[in-house]
Nucleic acid binder design. Structure first.
Lengths: 141, 141
DNA sequence: TGCTAAACGATAATCATTGTCAAAAAGGGT
DNA sequence: ACCCTTTTTGACAATGATTATCGTTTAGCA
């Protein structure tokens, strides 16, 4: 059976306490920085497991996977700041319908879709306008 | 200045002669199989360069980048068979507008988006129904 | 034809992710 | 509370795609 370990709980908690999407590596660093002795492989395993159960969302950027705790239990998409990682969960019913229809029109079955919107959030837009530097993605907010 | 080499041309040609999305590694194998002496690093460089100029589209799947020659010069999206890689280029004006609007509503600027629909094409759907096996992605069609 | 900077190719290096395996510990039964 | 079985962990090795390095080749032009 599936067991409850403090490690899995620590990953869940750390992810919930994070505003935007983070990489497994960054999440692991943060856990270590806060005194946890959790291993890197375990973080990867926990994230994969949590993704399977639908407790966290994942997306791929620049060839690395980023994770975030879901606040909505239902299917949704994301509006992500490519500077600070701040994320807004958005529902997109028209897009869902469009995707289904396009797939059907071309005889495709078992359709799913990847829909993400990236941009600069209001704060980072102001920052950039003030001449501020853009930081690397994957950072914690 | 930018130079025209037979290597870059070979990559462009090989990609044009391919139906679906392919990985750099697979494309390289095919070029070698057809007698070319092109190097792997060069294939990567050519693909990156072609993507920059907008001549080819790229998407990320399972942590690897896949490439395909664009037939439309304008912005568009893809409907991709996750079994055989067959791809249909689709325009999605309603989605473009939706993305722009959602970004603006939340104060995001410089918005772009990732929109891809995956599924099983008609042929592969029939194949699967007949008990056929699904092959791995990244293969050439 | 000769020059020079861009492009190439072989290979080493990088980096995220996954596999391995002995040691630790969760859950249930006694 | 203790033991037993099985899952999970953690340190580290292995993998696999992509990128950097660097000496050699070559496209484009005088």
């Amino acid at each position: 059976m599936k067991r409850n370990t403090w490690q899995r709980e620590a990953v869940r908690t750390a992810l919930t306490g994070t505003e935007g999407f983070v990489s497994a590596q960054v999440l692991h660093s943060h856990l270590r920085d806060t005194g946890s002795s959790i291993g890197l492989a375990t973080v990867y395993r926990a994230l994969a497991s949590l993704e399977e159960t639908g407790e966290v969302d994942a997306l791929q950027q620049d060839g690395e996977s980023l994770y975030r705790a879901c606040t909505q239990g239902t299917h949704h998409h994301h509006l992500i700041c490519r500077n600070c990682g701040t994320t807004v969960e958005i529902s997109a019913d028209p897009v869902e319908q469009w995707a289904r229809q396009v797939a059907a029109e071309h005889g495709f079955t078992q359709a799913n879709h990847v829909v993400d919107v990236f941009g600069l959030c209001a704060a980072c837009t102001a920052l950039a306008a003030a001449g501020g530097q853009v930081a690397e993605p994957g950072r914690v907010t």
